Amino acid sequence: MAFIKGKSGNPKGRPRKTLEEKLQKEQFKELLKEFTFSALESIIEIANDGSNKDRFNACKYIIDKSYGTDKALLIEETEDEPITIKIIPKYRVNEED
């Protein structure tokens, strides 16, 4: 079947979920919430383990979930002071609009 310009290939759209599918999704979400704390503990443990090859990904995950992926991190380091991390928006909103 060839593509016809201006006509949808799926005119009825995505099929609606049944009540059973909606209940299964809610049960799955609740199950995930039960393991959130232990999963976060594991991610923090990986982030703190200097020899773990997934350390960077664990740190990135924590930062992304804490501050969002639309932020940039500026790391400032001096010899006398500890490392300072400043979090700023990547995209600045035009205040004139």
Rank of each mutant, 00 (worst) to 15 (best):
M1N: 15
F3G: 11
I4N: 08
K5G: 14
G6T: 05
G6A: 02
K7G: 09
S8N: 04
S8D: 04
N10I: 02
N10Q: 11
N10H: 01
N10L: 07
P11C: 01
P11E: 04
K12V: 05
R14E: 11
R14M: 10
P15W: 03
P15I: 00
P15H: 03
T18M: 09
E20T: 04
E21K: 02
E21Y: 05
K22R: 14
K22T: 13
L23G: 09
K25A: 12
E26Q: 11
F28D: 13
F28P: 01
K29Q: 01
L32P: 00
E34L: 09
F35A: 04
T36S: 09
T36Y: 04
T36G: 00
F37R: 04
A39G: 12
S42C: 05
I43M: 03
I44V: 15
I46G: 06
I46K: 02
A47N: 04
N48Q: 15
D49I: 11
D49M: 06
D49H: 06
G50L: 12
N52Y: 10
K53R: 10
R55I: 02
F56P: 03
A58V: 06
K60P: 01
K60G: 03
Y61Q: 11
I62C: 01
I63W: 04
I63V: 13
D64C: 02
K65I: 08
K65P: 02
Y67T: 11
G68Y: 05
D70W: 05
K71Y: 03
E76M: 12
E77Q: 15
T78G: 10
E79I: 13
E79A: 14
E79N: 04
E81M: 15
P82D: 05
T84D: 13
T84A: 10
T84S: 11
I85H: 07
I85M: 12
I85E: 10
I85F: 10
I87G: 08
P89A: 09
K90I: 10
Y91K: 15
R92I: 14
V93D: 00
V93K: 04
N94L: 12
N94E: 09
N94M: 08
E95C: 03
